[in-house]
Every structure is written in structure tokens, then in C-alpha cells.
């Protein structure tokens, strides 16, 4: 499913002590092709998560429009599993709301449990799982609804390095055969290069797309691959100035 973002602007109302409105996004234009994996990187606070929330309809844009007709799936930075539901019921949550039959739900849930290597934890409650397992359940829960477009907001940021690397591999495999359109927000440049077909670099606030990198490396990619490192370094150069800009702005706020 194609996704088109036209001239999105977003500003947040200023706080009460006389601060002016904060511009979070400025004239963002982006077209994502069907089945494409696009990564957004940028300094923290640049509005990349806000853009994802706007696409998802969780936040309203100040102006501009989003064209997309497919079903959206959203994966958050925290696993946001429902603590009152078992793993299998978390994964089947969306289907239950759609009032699918029990047999159908069980079938889909079992499929995604297997896909995410969680079959043994079907009956567990979320608090019994590790961070990486929770994120896998969250991924399975999102995929179970068969979304056309997958929006991912730093889903692996809170995980340890080993778990993350394992999940890069799994996500690439799942993406390669399901051919979903993915928009993946991260502040980790290497992560973006490993996963994305395209990496877009955002400027410091107000967020604008500054530069685009096409990643033409064969998949599955490894985070320690020398080519990944090379491209990451190039993107990091681009980012450095923006991070410096963001830090300067923060210092300005403290005064």
C-alpha cells in the first residue's frame, strides 16, 4: 500500500509562561512505495515520532495531508502489552474486536506465535516475559491484524544489544516474505542502515527531511558488516551538525 505525505506542518501550543508555540515539523513531504522499508533518523526531539503519530491518526497535523488507504499497524517504543491478557490473547486482541470466530483467532495466533518463536509462552502473562519477548509479542499482535503499513516507533530502543541483533534478523525475515510497507523511526543510525531500503535524515526542530540515503545492500544484513558501517558513518556525518543544533536549542531552553 502506497503512502503519501504532503506538506505536513505541526506546531504545539506554547506553555503558559509566555513561550511561543513550538514548531515540531515543517513542510514534510514523503512518498513511500508499496513494500518499501523506510527509516527515519534524526536528533531527539526532531519530530520524527510526532510524524508517525500523525500518520497513525493519534495526533492531528496543523496542516497538510496524508494519503493512505490501507490498514495501519503501530508498534510503540514500549511493548504496551495488556497486562490483564495472556500472550495469546494479546496477540488475538485486534481480531477479537473484529469479532472473528474463535477458531480463526486461534489459527492466526498460533501462526504468529510460531513466527515470533513464542509458542512456549502462549499461556504466559506479559510480566513473566523478558523485554525482548514482550516486543516480539507486540510485533505479533500488530502483524495479526494483517496491516498494510507498519509504523514502528523506536521499537527496539529499550532492549539490550544481543536481543536487538536477533530481532533485526527476525524483522528482516518477516518483512522479506510479508512485503509490508514499513516506516521505522529510530535514533540508531546502524539500525536504520541494517533495516531500511531508504534512510531519511531529519533536521533538528522544526523537523524537515534533510537528506535521503538509498541502501542497496543485499539482505539479510548484519549490523557488523563493513558496508553497513561505511554507510552509517556517512549518515552520522550528516547527523552530527543536526545533533549539535539540537543540543544548542536545549541549552537555550535551560536559560
Amino acid at each position: 500500500m502506497k503512502l503519501q505525505i504532503n506538506n505536513i506542518n505541526k506546531s504545539f501550543a506554547g506553555s503558559n509562561n509566555g513561550q511561543s508555540a513550538v514548531e515540531a515539523l515543517k513542510n514534510v513531504n514523503l512518498t513511500v512505495a508499496e513494500g518499501e522499508f523506510v527509516c527515519l533518523v534524526g536528533p531527539s526531539g526532531c519530530g520524527k515520532s510526532t510524524l508517525l503519530n500523525i500518520i497513525a491518526g493519534l495526533t492531528a497535523a496543523s496542516s497538510g495531508q496524508i494519503d493512505c488507504s490501507g490498514r495501519l499497524g503501530f508498534m510503540f517504543q514500549e511493548p504496551t502489552l495488556f497486562p490483564w491478557l495472556k500472550v495469546k490473547d494479546n496477540i488475538g486482541f485486534g481480531l477479537k474486536i473484529l469479532k472473528r470466530s474463535k477458531e480463526k483467532i486461534n489459527e492466526v495466533v498460533d501462526y504468529f506465535l510460531e513466527l515470533t518463536h513464542l509458542s512456549n509462552f502462549k499461556e504466559a502473562y506479559p510480566h513473566e516475559l523478558s523485554g525482548g519477548m514482550k516486543q516480539r509479542v507486540a510485533l505479533a499482535r500488530t502483524l495479526a491484524l494483517k496491516p498494510d503499513i507498519l509504523l514502528m516507533d523506536e521499537p527496539f530502543a529499550a532492549l539490550d544489544a544481543q536481543t536487538r541483533e536477533m530481532l533485526y534478523k527476525e524483522l528482516q525475515e518477516i518483512w522479506q516474505f510479508s512485503k509490508k510497507t514499513v516506516i521505522f523511526v529510530t535514533h540508531n543510525v546502524r539500525e536504520a542502515v541494517v533495516l531500511g531500503d531508504r534512510v531519511l535524515v531529519f533536521t533538528a526542530r522544526p523537523g524537515q527531511i534533510k537528506k535521503e540515503f538509498k541502501i542497496n545492500l543485499p539482505r539479510p544484513r548484519d549490523i557488523n558488516d563493513i558496508e553497513v558501517t561505511k554507510i552509517s558513518n556517512a549518515i552520522n556525518q550528516e547527523l552530527k551538525t543536526e545533533v549539535a543544533e539540537a543540543v544548542k536549542e536545549l541549552e537555550h531552553y535551560e536559560k
Binding site: L58, L72, F74, T80, F82, G94, K96, I97, T142, L145
Partner: peptide
């Protein structure tokens, strides 16, 4: 947590379903 409500919304729970589930 608002993020839990957002997660529910993104999985299709709105209106009365949001309350119930």
C-alpha cells in the same frame, strides 16, 4: 497510561469497545 489507550486504538478498539476491552 495513555500509550496503552493508543495501543488499543491502533488495534481497532474505539468507542464502547475501548471501554470494554
Amino acid at each position: 497510561p495513555p500509550i496503552l489507550i493508543n495501543a488499543g486504538k491502533m488495534l481497532g478498539a474505539d468507542g464502547l469497545n475501548l471501554y470494554r476491552y
